[in-house]
């Protein structure tokens, strides 16, 4: 027995480790999130939480469901593949409840220039103008219908103002 006596203190130290390890195992059960490891080394519930982020851009399908007249005009012109919110901005609030807000009409002088101001950096085939020479401060929709910009197609304020019903 005396043989063990001289090493007993080592077992006391080892005992600390065993206790710490057992505490670790118990705590682990409570601390690790339930869905952790469901698909991989992460919290599976996080996927749903990220997917629950609210939407700000309604998507053109939603716009077209009410504004089918504009969609028809647009489909014929060069802007057929420009989505509504590319120019009108994020409008999920409006799409959700049209009466809650009326979208502000973009200022064409600013809006059109953003894409169509001439720059040698832009792809060659892209229609570009020098705003100062081109119209000298006259708003673009005076001559162009933003929804179908070729002159003579369906020009003027009336067409641009569509979708108010």
């Amino acid at each position: 027995m005396s043989g063990f006596k001289d090493v007993s203190h080592l077992f006391r130290f080892a005992g600390l480790f065993v206790i710490a390890f057992l505490v670790f195992l118990v705590v682990r059960v409570y601390v690790v999130p339930k869905s952790f490891g469901e698909y991989g080394h992460y919290r599976a519930a996080a996927i749903g939480e990220i997917a629950a982020h609210p939407i700000k851009f309604a998507g053109h399908q939603a716009c077209e469901s009410c504004h089918s007249d504009i969609a028809d005009t647009k489909a014929k012109g060069a802007h057929a593949h420009v989505n509504c919110e590319a120019c009108h901005g994020a409008l999920a609030t409006h799409a959700n409840d049209p009466s809650s807000m009326t979208p502000v009409k973009p200022d064409t002088l600013v809006l059109c220039a953003r894409c169509h101001t001439a720059s040698a950096a832009k792809p060659k085939g892209f229609p570009q103008v020098n705003p100062a020479d081109h119209m000298g401060g006259v708003p673009c929709q005076t001559c162009h219908n933003p929804h179908s910009p070729a002159i003579g197609s369906d020009t003027g304020k009336g067409a641009a103002a569509g979708g108010t019903k």
């Binding site: 990220i50 939407i55 989505n83 590319a86």
Partner: peptide
């Protein structure tokens, strides 16, 4: 997030939605 909250609902991402040239 590749607009994960949009693509899981059948929408495209905000950047694609807003891109005028595709």
């Amino acid at each position: 997030t590749l607009c994960y909250h949009r693509i899981t609902k059948g929408l495209t991402t905000a950047c694609c939605e807003a891109c005028p040239t595709g």
